[in-house]
Structures are given as C-alpha cells and as structure tokens.
C-alpha cells in the first residue's frame, strides 16, 4: 500500500464511521428535527469524506479538478437542501422533542431576552 492509499483509507474509514452513526441516529431519535441533525452526519460529513477519499485516489488532473469543483459546490448546495426541508418542517408546525420534558409547552415560544 502506498502513502496515497493509506490516506484514502483514513478518509473512507471516517466516511463509514460518520455514515453509520448518522443512519443509527436517524432511526433512534423520535422527531424530524433530531433526525435531520443526525442525518446531517450521513448526508454531509460522510459524503464530504467520500469526496476527500475520491480526490486522493483521482487518477488524473481532469478528474481531480472536477472533484474539487463538486466539493466546493457541495458546501453551498447541501445546506440549501437541508434548509428547505427544515423550513418546511418548521412552518408545518412540528413540535420539538424534549428528552426530559418538565412542561408540556413545546415550540413557538420566544426566549426571554
């Protein structure tokens, strides 16, 4: 194994770690917001790690340049997609899950400033 492959292995291993943690979290948490937070691990960090691994293993400059452009645009497009989903969830009035809820009063209440 060359040095390049070791680095790619590290990137792919972190992708597997974050991806599986995100999938576990997506099934473990009970409300859409928390699922979105955990799913962000799989949908953003794991994908980004896979890009880094692919960039390290890129066979020629044309492929590497395209992967870099995809990475930069992914940093813009990924939060835009999650923002659209989050805004839809918020505007349809989904309440927020609270693990040790003392009161029944949930979201939509402004914090005292």
């Amino acid at each position: 194994m060359s040095v390049r492959e070791w680095f790619a292995l590290i990137a792919f291993a972190s992708s597997v770690l974050f991806g599986s943690a995100g999938l576990v979290g997506m099934f473990r948490f009970p409300d859409p917001y928390s699922r979105m937070q955990a799913g962000g691990l799989c949908g953003t960090t794991a994908v980004f790690s896979a890009f880094i691994g692919a960039l390290i293993l890129a066979p020629n400059a044309a492929i590497a340049a395209r992967v870099v452009v995809i990475m930069v645009f992914f940093l813009v497009s990924a939060p835009t997609g999650s923002y659209i989903v989050a805004r839809f969830t918020w505007q349809s009035g989904t309440p927020v899950w609270k693990p040790l809820a003392k009161t029944k009063r949930l979201s939509r209440k402004k914090e005292p400033t």
């Binding site: 992708s15 995100g22 699922r35 799913g39 799989c42 949908g43 994908v47 997609g81 989903v85 349809s92």
Partner: peptide, 25 residues
C-alpha cells in the same frame, strides 16, 4: 410524517451524489 420522508430524501440525494463521484473515480 411528510417531514421524515423529506429528511430521508435529502440524505438519499447526498449519498447518490457521493456514489456518482466514487464510481466516476
């Protein structure tokens, strides 16, 4: 709920993107 399905779809699109890149390499 519909929100859960949209969250899953969002993650699915990211995974599909990563798959395209890794397959291309």
């Amino acid at each position: 709920t519909a929100a859960d399905r949209l969250v899953a779809l969002n993650i699915l699109s990211g995974v599909a993107l990563a798959f395209l890149v890794v397959r291309g390499v």
